[in-house]
Design a protein around this nucleic acid. Structure first.
Lengths: 195, 195, 195, 195
DNA sequence: AATTAACCGAGACGGTACGTCACGTCTTTAA
DNA sequence: TTAAAGACGTGACGTACCGTCTCGGTTAATT
């Protein structure tokens, strides 16, 4: 009687993966159009052609939806190895800023913090961890090449870069120029003078 | 002297300074006790013994009240001149971190951004400008003394410090240790090796 | 048969009939206890064990709730046919006055007018229309029986009765006595002297 | 020795009669323009060029201001004696309706009831008493002339007229036509058939 | 003339209720 | 068996008027 293990021809509607995607897309669009705090679950549901209940089935709350919707876009691209710390670092911070700028509304990040407390913080941390490793790598290469002193506090440098980018893009909403980023990169304690 | 600015003698009852102060105090207390997002206008009004209407007469919304309430505490203290950039900078960033930590709930800062948009950003900018000048001064002294290269991008360094502090304290809610800050300061491109 | 009115099959949770009834009951009770203008939406909601939002979902404002709450009680009872206009009319106006008196607070009626304008007026009109027909019927019977002149302006008589009752009960808040009502009924232009 | 009733000689500035008049005029205008319940003390004060405090110095509340503002216009004019009850009564009710119609917004009357309770009722009663006497007089003349039966309940007739007018003008906001009023007057129990 | 009481304008204040918004939960029906 | 449609409790929001209470300034009658 029971065919529960069979390649089961089942009744009812199948869980729709398109709906899932539609939700994330709707969330992204709405954030870009209205800014974080005018986006509501109701609106996301409407735009995605989905019931509000469905949102709450898959995400605990609004900030979670938006965070996920936006997270994909925040992963770092491949980091080149040019043989020069200065150039690698320049490319790295430029990519970081470009990525953060890409969020329609920078307060998305702030929103995750206000409304999600520890959870939001954790998610943010995870997200930014992805950016720490490539940065650390290029600095290590620089030390190995003798461009930077062996005693350099890699963590501190990386955090100051992340902080700088978040500060300019998210807090001040005035993205740094190429020159600003060059200044930042130039402030590393190179063992040799600039060419 | 200029007469035109003579404070036009005004009519009507004066704004009650006690009420104003009570509101700010109440806001500070509540943020510390409940955390940013459990503070409501209603609660602030009740604690301050003030009508809710009075809050809205003087501040556009909750974030504005709290921002102002908290701003006083965020001004930098006097910055010492020890004759060593390394030490001055160490004291500076330590003071900065200590000050930011002093907010009961770091998401206050994030709240100002999410709920006040441009206005919140402006206020934050003004607030942080007060920290820029002392930092710039100590860097200029270092350059003058030959401790730092003349080409140093002072703005970039300062912003990376501010960013670092905000990132650690507000975003990650994991305040940097003394060692972390030492690492940050050590990453400056000193013209001479550390003693 | 007409298909167009077929109750389009709808989805979603049904409107809770108990909540609806509880609201009306609460409104009736509160009006009786506190008088019209001390009744608030908040209080109605609390008493009914219902969210304030639910009130505003189904009624535009306080006056609307109370009007509906009170309307049920204002329908005329069955009107007897005694064969005598004088007696029918007496019973009719007595019933009318008794019904209006039954509102705990007469200013309910005034409230509907002040706060709801045209809508309130419409509702009141509908409500009173129910009283017009029985009155007209008894007058027509009287005319048919030759007790009243054929030329009698039935509408005018009815409106003067309604007006009289409202005026005494609602405006003056001094309900007419049996004698007063007898005087009113006696002022009809009977074709025959009183027995 | 004691002259306590003497118009005690007083010091200080006198009450400004222009301000007083301006208030009443403003109130009348605003009622006509906005309708009773959109008139606020603030608006009256602004329109009259007067401080809100001044309003509360002289009137206990909004309904009182408006009631007084409107009362002047509600006194009955001189009532003619044509020698015919039918004609006198017609003129009387016509005048009554015209006067009530003259209020820009009929809900003024209702407003006095809702917001002033017993006090409002008393004022209204006083106001309408002025209309009772002329009506009673014309009915008495009719009885004296033998046009109406001696047993007529004069009070009931007058109240039904007042009620009718209020009902039509204030409650239904559909003023009676000449024909309606003729019907009303015709429904009196004349001892002789109409000519 | 100086004093002083009563008025007036402006306007800030405590308070009550309003009507709205979005959240997150729960229920019913259609697919 | 899933999800759409949608009603619900909850809690805070920001607004509107109310009626009260100072302020500074303006008349006038009293000293």
């Amino acid at each position: 009687m029971d065919e529960s293990k069979a390649p089961r021809p089942r009744r009812g509607r199948y869980r729709d993966p398109q709906a899932h995607a539609a939700v994330l897309r709707a969330a992204r669009e709405l954030v870009a159009e209205l800014g974080y705090h005018k986006v509501t679950m109701e609106r996301i549901a409407a735009r995605a052609g989905v019931a509000k209940m469905t949102l709450y089935r898959w995400w605990p709350n609004k900030a979670a939806v938006i965070t996920e919707a936006v997270t994909d876009q925040l992963a770092p691209g491949p980091q080149p190895d040019t043989g020069s710390v200065r150039e690698d670092a320049g490319a790295h911070v430029t990519d970081l800023v470009r990525t953060l700028t890409l969020l329609g509304d920078p307060s998305v990040v702030a929103g995750a913090l206000v409304e999600r407390g520890e959870a939001g913080r954790a998610e943010l941390r995870d997200l930014l961890v992805a950016w720490r490793e490539p940065g650390a790598a290029l600095l290590r290469r620089g030390i190995a090449r003798g461009e930077l002193p062996a005693a350099l506090d890699i963590g501190a440098v990386i955090d100051s870069w992340l902080g700088y980018a978040l500060y300019r893009v998210v807090f001040l909403e005035s993205a740094p120029t190429e020159a600003d980023l060059a200044g930042l990169v130039d402030a590393l304690p190179y063992t040799r003078r600039k060419a």
